[in-house]
Design a protein around this nucleic acid. Structure first.
Lengths: 159, 159
DNA sequence: ACCTGAACACCGTTCAAGT
DNA sequence: ACCTGAACACCGTTCAAGT
């Protein structure tokens, strides 16, 4: 808050004429950021490719705003109109891929958890296993590989 | 810090005779908590079942210490001896399942991201999609389902 | 409607001093 | 070796008052 106020050349408490609380401001900011996620229309092309592209775009956008990611997780995902839109597109893509109902909601949840979690882990880098620090460009490749695994798993018949 | 000090009946700065910083204290606490994760010996039974059990135990332990999870994510995983041990067991299980080398490290990373991310999302509950709040017991089932998907995806031939 | 000054109730941490 | 008191440099937020 105080840093934002300084950036605006205004006293800290002046912000409270425009914003309810710090959390509300972050919520709004997060949803603004999600506007940059590219979601191509869900009714064209291979739905699996569409899902992959949407999650990859989300991952990139989150990485570009790394400081917001911990907050994103603390809030357990966004709830603004842009988050809604992305969720709806995802469900449409899943439906076209033959996944619907509670299975689709579970799939969406898994994909969201994995994507936000990956962004959180990538932002400062060493793996949880005590491995040496991975080169920065590797994160995208790692994310991509894991995403493919999950998509492959989802498309399997229910166990 | 001040809350911990009060619990110990001591002044806040007294803690700094025993601990370098708040972060160091949390790091140690986190690794202590991970000691409770049950890792059966990796050389018996179906390795996929072993992996599933280990990640499910991690998930449960993290949920039992929900307040630590955001910190866990901010630190991008633990680095203490218990985290090391669990990582080693995981790699042994993956090897017995036919996954090794960089593919095994990627698989471990995906599983860790998914497990910690799930714990973070489950701790206070609504999904990212604006869905109604899910009953608390559903989280375990959701986690289990997603974990199975990921394990199925990992065991597929490399793409 | 939007801002300011002053203040409140917090933080983590340091430092000198005590035993 | 372990604690205390006092202080520092922060927080987010409120409240009364100004324009």
């Amino acid at each position: 808050m105080r840093a934002v106020a300084e950036r605006l050349g205004v006293s800290p408490n002046a912000l409270y004429s425009h914003v309810e609380t710090k959390t509300a401001l972050l919520d709004d900011t997060l949803d603004d950021v999600l506007a940059a996620v590219e979601a191509s229309p869900p009714d064209a092309g291979d739905p699996t490719v569409g899902i992959h592209a949407l999650m990859a775009s989300t991952y990139r956008v989150l990485l570009a705003h790394a400081d917001l990611v911990p907050f994103y997780l603390a809030r357990q995902g966004a709830r603004g109109p842009n988050a809604q839109r992305l969720g709806d597109v995802m469900l449409a893509l899943l439906a076209r891929g033959g996944v619907s109902g509670s299975r689709a909601r579970e799939a969406l949840h898994v994909l969201v958890v994995y994507t936000i979690g990956s962004a959180a882990f990538a932002t400062r880098s060493p793996l949880a296993t005590g491995d040496a620090t991975a080169p920065a460009g590797d994160h995208d490749a790692h994310f991509d590989r894991g995403l493919r695994w999950i998509l492959a798993g989802i498309s399997l018949p229910p166990g």
